[in-house]
Simulated scan of single mutants.
Amino acid sequence: MEIITGVERRRRWSVEEKLRLVAECDAPGSSVTRVSRQHDINRALLWTWRRQVRRGELGGETDRGFLAVTLPTLPWVRHCSTGARTRDWRLCCLTGCICS
């Protein structure tokens, strides 16, 4: 626990410290609650910093969570009983046809 003496009651956090603490929250096996208790910080303040990082207001990564994916084109499959064509064998099987 940190005891603050003097006139100033609020701690000042640099952008680097905020980013470090947010990164610590995102580490595997960690949580906002654990980091807030460890550094004696209000959880709401850490959540605010996390939101600011996501929006790009504190710097750091802003495009987390999205990854470009290319899916292969499926070949046409002939429906066994009706001769209809589909790209999804499940559609064929859901209509009662056995595609084996």
Score class of each variant (00 low, 15 high):
residue 24 E to Y: 06
residue 24 E to P: 07
residue 24 E to A: 02
residue 25 C to K: 04
residue 25 C to I: 00
residue 26 D to R: 13
residue 26 D to T: 01
residue 26 D to F: 08
residue 26 D to W: 12
residue 27 A to V: 07
residue 27 A to K: 14
residue 28 P to R: 12
residue 28 P to A: 14
residue 29 G to W: 00
residue 29 G to Y: 05
residue 30 S to K: 08
residue 30 S to T: 05
residue 30 S to G: 06
residue 30 S to F: 04
residue 30 S to N: 14
residue 31 S to V: 07
residue 31 S to M: 09
residue 32 V to S: 02
residue 33 T to Y: 13
residue 33 T to R: 12
residue 34 R to K: 15
residue 34 R to S: 14
residue 35 V to M: 06
residue 35 V to A: 01
residue 36 S to L: 09
residue 36 S to R: 02
residue 36 S to A: 15
residue 36 S to Y: 07
residue 36 S to F: 06
residue 36 S to V: 08
residue 36 S to N: 03
residue 36 S to K: 02
residue 36 S to Q: 01
residue 37 R to C: 12
residue 37 R to W: 13
residue 37 R to P: 05
residue 37 R to H: 14
residue 38 Q to N: 13
residue 38 Q to R: 15
residue 38 Q to I: 03
residue 39 H to A: 04
residue 40 D to C: 12
residue 40 D to Y: 06
residue 41 I to S: 03
residue 41 I to V: 15
residue 41 I to F: 10
residue 42 N to G: 08
residue 42 N to W: 10
residue 42 N to K: 12
residue 42 N to I: 10
residue 42 N to A: 11
residue 42 N to Y: 04
residue 43 R to K: 13
residue 43 R to L: 02
residue 43 R to I: 09
residue 44 A to T: 10
residue 44 A to Y: 02
residue 44 A to P: 05
residue 44 A to N: 12
residue 44 A to C: 13
residue 45 L to F: 07
residue 46 L to M: 06
residue 46 L to G: 04
residue 46 L to K: 06
residue 47 W to M: 08
residue 47 W to E: 07
residue 47 W to C: 02
residue 47 W to I: 03
residue 48 T to P: 01
residue 48 T to E: 04
residue 48 T to V: 08
residue 48 T to C: 06
residue 48 T to W: 11
residue 48 T to N: 12
residue 49 W to S: 01
residue 49 W to A: 01
residue 49 W to M: 14
residue 50 R to S: 00
residue 50 R to N: 09
residue 50 R to V: 12
residue 50 R to Q: 14
residue 51 R to H: 09
residue 51 R to P: 09
residue 51 R to S: 11
residue 53 V to D: 02
residue 53 V to C: 02
residue 53 V to K: 03
residue 54 R to Q: 02
residue 54 R to F: 11
residue 54 R to L: 08
residue 54 R to C: 08
residue 54 R to T: 10
residue 55 R to C: 00
residue 55 R to W: 04
residue 55 R to M: 08
residue 56 G to D: 07
residue 56 G to L: 05
residue 57 E to H: 05
residue 57 E to W: 00
residue 58 L to A: 00
residue 58 L to G: 04
residue 58 L to W: 00
residue 58 L to E: 10
residue 58 L to D: 08
residue 59 G to H: 01
residue 59 G to Y: 07
